[in-house]
Design a protein around this nucleic acid. Structure first.
Length: 426
RNA sequence: GCCCCGGUCGUAUAGCCCGGUCUAGUAUGGCAGGCUGUCGCCCUGCCGACGCGGGUUCAAAUCCCGCCCGGGGCGCCA
């Protein structure tokens, strides 16, 4: 061994074994490297050569050896001539799917075998970006004076908009998984925390069979006090989202390239569309929505197209939804509209929010209007009697945002272990 | 909740409409062997599948019914 030679120790999963008589090439994969082990029969101990027969694809090994000064292997980060290989975990054959995607598996098969499916640099890229997105959200929020809080997932009463909730056994009674951290965020505002965010799970018990719904997903929920109106909330969201997109683009160019994605960040401010002007825009697409009604899914896509063309933006806000379709806690604007704001990304809703009603009497009136029983909401409403500042916020669906950002065809790609009406395992 | 579609080797598919020549084809894979610079290595041989139940028929992967399991669309929403 010359002083130039470097001994390295590597580990990973066996991606391929190519044995050509008396020379063998093993490609090893781990989450930041691809390594080729080059083994020449005459240059290694007999035991090492014999071990090759034991190896199967996706087995876990560690290897130690001399680093090739000039690697011949293509598409790997490192080539070494191992003097020792230890088989840590032998993978059974055949594999339920091929992680290298040479023979691509269908999504259900992939999800049934998700840990193997994920063992691949393109899948890892998605979740590295997922982590970076949340990191960037937190970074911006902290810099701007927001405090992270943790609100309960278990709620004693099914409230809110009446969206389907999952009942849970709680000792001798039934409680529910939250469908949004909304109400407790508001109570925390009333507790005097003026700027806060809560990143955590939400659940919806809807039997939605689509490529954009999950029964369990994560939101970045932000709430702030002492706002003038919902425009302050839009400003916060705009700055937050643009910052996050910029950061992801900066820090993960390699992953984005791997996924073939170019993130476009709006240069100016994010455009805002409003009801009732929205009806006029949709008419241009030959879509006729009755005045005072909300739009549907198809409309969202049309508006996305419109904004892309008119403002060259993938993102846009929609403000002034019809109040009748919104929950009791939103603040009304001029009738029949609400100070209710959605953010859409490439034609899909990724967040909703707006200004909340903080005036106790108005809140109680709205509860009655919605035909809800005030008694069931008293645990929440009574605190509005003791000093509630004007406030508002929004909740961004992380998986939805990621799906649109990375042009994923199915939201299940944007979550490690998706939960949908059919799937609760693995 | 409503509507539509699908289920064939480990994986991905052909065959189904128009029943027989399907002893079910192909690719990848697995197993065994050969090959000293491969890199989606190559070459030879072998292995491996019609979701379940019933019906029609001389004959069913193929047609019909039921069930099970998936996927997608709508609605609702993040």
């Amino acid at each position: 061994m010359t002083p130039m030679e470097e001994i390295v120790k590597v580990h990973g999963w066996v991606r391929s074994i190519r044995q050509l008589g008396n020379i063998c090439f093993i490609v090893l994969w781990n989450w930041n490297q691809k390594i080729q082990l080059t083994i020449k029969r005459k240059e290694v101990p007999v035991e090492l050569w014999k071990l090759i027969d034991e190896l199967t694809p996706e087995s876990v090994i560690v290897a130690e050896g001399r680093k090739a000064e000039k690697k011949i292997a293509k598409d790997v980060d490192l080539e070494i001539f191992p003097s020792q290989i230890v088989l840590l975990s032998k993978a059974c054959t055949p594999l339920p799917l091929d992680p290298s995607e040479r023979v691509p598996a269908l999504l259900p098969t992939r999800l049934d075998n998700r840990p193997l499916d994920l063992r691949n640099e393109r899948r890892h890229a998605i979740f590295k970006i997922y982590a970076a997105l949340i990191y960037a959200f937190e970074e911006w929020l902290r810099k701007n004076g927001f405090i992270r809080v943790y609100t309960p997932s278990i709620i004693g009463a099914p409230s809110e908009s009446g969206a389907a909730v999952f009942p849970v056994k709680y000792f001798d009674r039934t409680v529910y998984l939250r469908q949004d951290p909304q109400l407790h965020r508001q109570l925390t505002i009333i507790a005097g925390f003026e700027r806060l965010y809560d990143i955590g799970p939400s659940w919806r018990a809807e039997k939605s069979h689509t490529t954009r719904h999950l029964c369990e997903y994560t939101v970045c929920a932000v709430e702030q006090a002492f706002i003038e109106d919902e425009i302050d909330v839009e400003k916060t969201e705009e700055n937050l989202v643009k910052y996050a997109l910029r950061k992801v683009k900066q820090k993960h160019s390699k992953e984005l390239e791997l996924l073939g994605v170019d993130i476009e960040i709006p240069r100016g401010s994010i455009p805002e569309l409003r009801f009732p002007e929205i009806y006029e825009i949709l008419k241009k697409f030959n879509k006729h929505i009755p005045y005072g009604e909300s739009y549907d899914d198809e409309s969202e896509r049309m508006l996305g197209e419109y904004v892309k063309k008119e403002y060259d933006s993938d993102l846009f806000f929609v403000n002034r939804f019809p109040y009748k379709d919104k929950p009791f806690y939103v603040m009304k604007a001029e009738p029949p509209w609400a100070r209710s704001v959605d953010l859409l990304y490439k034609g899909l809703e990724i967040s909703s929010g707006g200004q909340r009603e903080h005036r106790y009497e108005v809140l109680m009136k709205q509860i009655k209007e919605k035909g809800l029983d005030p008694k069931n909401l008293e645990w929440y409403t009574k605190f509005f009697k003791y000093g509630a500042p004007p406030h508002g916020g929004f909740a961004i669906g992380i998986e939805r945002m990621l799906m649109k950002m990375l042009n994923l065809k199915n939201i299940r790609e944007a979550i490690l272990f998706p939960r949908d009406p059919e799937r609760a395992l693995p």
